[in-house]
Amino acid sequence: MEKILAIFKKEFKSYFVSPIAYVFITVYLVISSFLFFQTFFLNNQANMRGYFEFLPWIFLFFVPAITMRSWAEERKVKTLELLLTWPVSDFEVVVGKFLAAFGFLAAGIVLSMTIPITILIIGKPDLGPIVGGYIGALLMGGAYLAIGMWISSYTENQIIAFILGVVATFVFFIIGSPFIVVFAPNAVAPLLTYLGLGTHFESIERGVIDSRDIIYYCSIVGFFLFLNIQSLASRKWE
């Protein structure tokens, strides 16, 4: 536990040492706020439905940018050899890194809270969908992070990690959408609907927090962290 904490602290700090973090958080906040307020006053409705509808698409680029360096950088400057000869298990390293990335994502989300605060000041929104939307955003962001980190563990090039991360999360996001499911054979269709990252988000953003959706996101995170641990262990089979 202490070791996870040590890795978490170090990784979390390292996000803020480079200017990349500030640039990304700024870009994220500007784009998401712009897209939201563009239609907010036209609709004249005190809710955030529009915001949570396009959030998954913004995450598609924002989240792989958070995770792209997590392993790629360690591989490139060879610190991986150091890290894995210290007395920490692969599990502790992976979890510590994931939590740090999650913390960074959460920081970005907290900073975007200016939007609900604005809405609260000028109107009387239904808080349920907003709270649900934020919980959903954290869960979905966590799933994206786990996928992005796993991808990053296969390359020492951050750009490749980013692009493949975008592709992989996109595939997972879109896989359950009706548009794809229609073309799938009947036997696979329900599975695809279940696996799609987007489908579960839709119910949460309506303010319905279903334990099935929470379990789904947690198991996606668990599964990809497990794959991540395996990919670290793959050095042993070479």
Binding site: E2, A6, I7, K10, S14, V17
Partner: peptide, 23 residues
């Protein structure tokens, strides 16, 4: 290690503190 890999973006004290905590 042969290549002496280090976390370049950390300060010396910060790095040794991290190593100590890991240890």
């Amino acid at each position: 290690a042969e290549t002496n890999p280090l976390y370049g973006d950390m300060c010396v004290r910060e790095y040794l503190q991290f190593v100590g905590e890991i240890r």
